[in-house]
Design a protein around this nucleic acid. Structure first.
Lengths: 148, 148
DNA sequence: TTATAGTATAGTTAGTTGATAGACAATAGA
DNA sequence: TCTATTGTCTATCAACTAACTATACTATAA
């Protein structure tokens, strides 16, 4: 698994929205500033998140975006797969988009890739944005200037 | 960690040389055929492996390439890092080529990336080409047409 | 001397990443 | 209704990477 800026940005956006889940609407501009993401690029990512049902929005003045479901219902893994595709180290062991390899049936490396894939999935699917938010809040107690 | 064709090819090359460790010289052409790797691309990979000290060669007729050290002294992880670079899912937690992130000190995602990085390293550094060769040999007993 | 086999480096093509630009659509409030 | 504000949509682009492909060169055994 490789996380690019796109995936990293998406995670930061969802975390920002999670931390503001009770408040409601948040403006794209604000997220851009807080998370240091180019606003025009951020807009595109928001559209993907909207299309996948994680975010809803309201246009016009006092408009903004907000989470479509509670943070505890959104796994980090879902967002990574949405933005980056398969989490497998190599496509022959991908569950979401497998590719054929003539050696597959008897490839001596497959065991390694499968172990790594399974562990990775366990970690990222075992963490929700509620867990991540909680971490942030715990950090904020100790250092109140936390701004993410 | 993402394994591309380059890395995948390199692993297959080293496995081929490991299986032929006792025999000695192996021609690039032969490896190309057995492992189904474009010969010109394979040559480039061999040069990288040579430069890093894993392979030695002899030119001219009856020339060829061979392993510079025994298979049990070569970890899969070394080759992956040589060909693909860092094994970290994201550069902020890379040990080989770390990058700065303004959120790093208090990023709530870092824990996930670190766990994945450490597990990945454990797997690929805990396996040598002797282990992989052994797997192949065990497979071959059951299905003698194994050609990798 | 010549065929053989590795060495070295420079292209090439297609696709991806990380943006930027600009026109458009909805809506709250004057 | 007009206008400023905010999100929506599509196009474009430069830089980079992956995976080859091409070509000239060097060493060596017979």
């Amino acid at each position: 698994m490789k996380i690019t800026f796109k995936g990293d940005y998406a995670l930061k956006i969802l975390l920002d929205l999670s931390l503001n889940y009770e408040k409601g609407l948040v403006q794209i501009k604000e997220i851009s500033k807080r998370q240091d993401i180019p606003v025009k690029y951020l807009e595109q990512i928001i559209l993907i998140l909207k299309g996948a049902g994680y975010v809803r929005s309201k246009r016009g003045p006092v408009g903004g975006v907000y989470l479509a479901k509670p943070p505890e219902k959104i796994k980090v893994g879902e967002i990574i797969r949405l933005m980056e595709g398969s989490t497998s180290p190599i496509s022959c062991v991908s569950r979401t988009a497998p590719s054929k390899c003539s050696f597959f049936r008897r490839c001596p490396f497959v065991g390694l890739w499968t172990e790594i894939r399974d562990f990775t999935n366990k970690i990222i699917d075992g963490t929700t944005f509620a867990d991540i938010s909680e971490k942030v809040e715990n950090m904020s107690v100790k250092s109140p200037d936390y701004s993410i």
